[in-house]
Write a protein that binds this DNA or RNA. Structure first.
Lengths: 211, 211
DNA sequence: ACCTGAACACCGTTCAAGT
DNA sequence: ACCTGAACACCGTTCAAGT
């Protein structure tokens, strides 16, 4: 698992092949199958170790909405160093022990805050889903820009060149779009993530208030 | 593109290799590179054709929230027949013409409804993101269950067997969890999707009301 | 219990050579 | 402009044989 993290952090998910991992451990790919059932199980082990890193606070019912936001940010911070590893979380429903502890503690915050059980049960999926897809897309975009530095400028140029007759609304808001990192280094990715988090939390609050 | 859809619809994204596509067209894989730059461009063509299928209504400002929900459902319905093709939408920012028309028309609904431009600009990402990740995860789960029919029951058994001392909140809501399809055929996937859609729309309405 | 080499059945993409 | 066969540099997984 340690060696696998080293590869993922350096090269991303695609770089983590059974063969490359075996090579780094000074053995052959077939030997890994004595320790994991296959690549999917290896990825689950990595994800569960990431889940172990996420600190979820004890419930403070009065500020449950902010606590949910904190949990979202904590999960994002834990996933960010590992490139597109987040993508592996989309493929399987995680059942590792650390993942279950994460879910249990998130549930504690929601239920203490008065969120009905049926809503809480659906929300414990949606929050990690938002975080995972955000980190995954951000990582792939980052890798693309690293490989192809002109990509960012090309995308903006394409959007700005769209004919305003056919795309009047898009032309009107194109100035408000800034995919991921701003040129000045302001963390636009963080702002976009917080926006998504706000939608989920405010939406849940509205549904919970209706009962 | 037609042949590619036939493969994706029958076998999913993994089945769509350049070699299999070429074989179905009675030629060699290398020949495809005279028509597309590579597999990523092929996937973009497929996704843009899906976008062409999505009907986005003209704005009715008074019911913009319901219209956003309708767009979400329409996009989901267009993606659903194509298995895990949705996963390809996570890898690249789509720039096809049909995709841009979709975005333009969604923006029209949002702006007519009074959503501030900065919020609308971020929301046009979040809505497709939710739809895509929902369809993608649902498809992978469905494929897993098809391959491994006992998976569903195993997952439920694992959750129900978790010790209530360590996981009291999870134990309390485990009855409210039903991943994807219910045994009785009720469309639980649809309900979960609508829940996510509600979070986004109600959250956006709350933010828009604040200005 | 753990490891090994070799094999099986695949990938995406490139490239010189053709029509 | 479009197509071809062959090659390059990979994959995940299995399996008989070893220690």
């Amino acid at each position: 698992v340690e060696a696998a993290f080293a590869i993922v952090d350096a090269e991303g998910l695609d770089g983590l092949s059974m063969r490359r991992l075996a090579q780094r451990l000074g053995t052959g790919a077939a030997s890994l199958y004595a320790h994991v059932s296959g690549r999917p199980e290896l990825l689950q082990l990595l994800l569960d170790r990431v889940a172990a890193e996420v600190r979820v606070p004890d419930p403070e019912p009065a500020r449950w909405q902010d606590q949910v936001r904190e949990v979202g940010h904590a999960l994002r911070d834990a996933l960010l160093p590992h490139r597109d590893l987040a993508g592996a979380a989309l493929a399987n429903i995680p059942t590792g022990d650390n993942t279950m502890v994460f879910t249990e503690r998130l549930l504690a915050i929601l239920r203490a805050g008065g969120v009905p059980d049926r809503l809480a049960a659906m929300f414990i999926d949606k929050l990690p889903q938002l975080v995972v897809v955000d980190v995954y897309e951000g990582s792939l975009f980052g890798q693309r820009v690293a490989r192809e530095p002109e990509y960012f400028a090309q995308l903006m140029a394409y959007w700005q060149a769209l004919p305003p007759e056919r795309f009047p609304n898009f032309a009107a808001i194109v100035g408000d779009i800034s995919p991921m990192e701003e040129a000045d280094g302001a963390d636009e990715g963080e702002a976009r993530f917080s926006f998504g988090l706000d939608l989920l939390v405010l939406g849940l609050a509205a549904l919970a208030a209706r009962g």
